[in-house]
Computed example of a mutant assay.
Amino acid sequence: MATEKLRAWADPIWQEIFRHPFVVEVYRGSLPMDKFRYYLLQDYNYLVNFTKALSLAAARAPSVELMKTALELAYGTVTGEMANYEALLREAGLTLKDAEGAEPNFVNVSYMSYLLSVCSLEGFYQCMAALLPCFWSYAEIAQRHRDALERNPVPLYRRWASVYLTPEYNALVEKLRALLDSSGAPPEALWPYFRQASIYELKFWQAAYEGH
């Protein structure tokens, strides 16, 4: 399967993500709250642009069915996930106005510019290969750190992370993987996009940890 190969090739990058201090500390409950607040503000901005990228992908879909899939993902992100983020912001002592007014950091701008560019100029499956690491890596992070999460003393961190362990979220990841696997696209053609997005995922965690 194409996605199995992509995941195997990206494993050195993903292993760095799994052991990144932000990831480890947020799942253990030892991450300073100011770092998590900064992450929430940045990630909210990311989700806004991620939705735009999915909408662009829909316009490049080779079939009506695939167009519907991309639009459903965009709708789910802008309604479900962003609504969840609004609740998380409130619990963290932040407002939607704070999130909308937050300046995206350099990595955030670079990552979003990359996704928007791919989804505007490349093919549908290349776009989906670039979007998949975000969905998939969060699911694997949650699985890797499940035991730590069970002992996590911070309710906000537990609530945030538990979303990525739900059957619904993991079914979404599997749906995206199946979409790419059924495309017939050789993994070599998808790899540059999957790799670059994986690198950006790692850099996003680092920028959140450093606060800039």
Rank of each mutant, 00 (worst) to 15 (best):
M82D: 06
E86C: 13
D43E: 14
Y157D: 03
V48R: 15
V23M: 03
I141Y: 07
A2M: 12
G211V: 06
A197H: 11
L54A: 08
A57L: 15
Y75E: 15
L6F: 08
L73H: 10
A92D: 12
V107L: 07
M67R: 13
A10M: 06
F18G: 12
D147V: 13
A74W: 11
Y85L: 08
E103L: 03
Q15C: 05
A53M: 01
A59I: 03
P155H: 08
F36N: 06
E100W: 04
E103G: 02
E201F: 07
A83D: 15
L88K: 10
N49I: 07
V23D: 00
T79A: 14
D147A: 15
V163Y: 15
P167D: 02
E188H: 05
G93L: 05
Y138T: 01
N45E: 08
A207P: 11
N105F: 08
G101S: 14
P192M: 00
L176I: 05
R28W: 01
A139K: 14
P12S: 01
E168R: 11
D11P: 03
A197T: 11
Q42A: 12
E201D: 09
P133Q: 04
Y164K: 06
D34K: 08
S120M: 13
L180S: 06
G29L: 15
K5C: 07
N45A: 07
L73D: 13
A10V: 10
A87W: 10
K35M: 01
E201L: 05
R19Y: 10
A2L: 13
F124G: 13
A92W: 11
V118L: 04
P32S: 08
T95E: 07
L132A: 04
S182I: 00
M67G: 09
L89A: 08
A57R: 15
T3A: 06
V163E: 14
W9E: 11
Q126Y: 08
A208E: 04
C119L: 14
T95M: 08
L180I: 03
E150K: 07
G76W: 02
L156D: 10
A102G: 07
R195M: 05
L54V: 10
E210M: 09
A197F: 06
D181F: 08
S120W: 07
V163Q: 15
G184A: 06
Y75L: 15
G211I: 06
M1L: 13
V78G: 15
E210C: 04
M82P: 12
V26G: 00
C134H: 11
E72M: 12
E91T: 07
V78T: 15
F204E: 01
S110A: 15
L56I: 05
Q42K: 07
R151H: 05
L40F: 03
Q196R: 12
A148G: 09
L41A: 05
G184N: 05
L73S: 14
M67Q: 10
S113F: 02
R28P: 00
C119M: 14
M112W: 02
D34A: 11
L202R: 13
D11L: 14
V163L: 15
S182D: 01
L121F: 14
V24Y: 03
G93R: 04
A99Q: 09
S30R: 14
P21W: 04
A53L: 01
A53W: 06
F22W: 06
S117W: 11
W205K: 08
E65Q: 10
W14P: 03
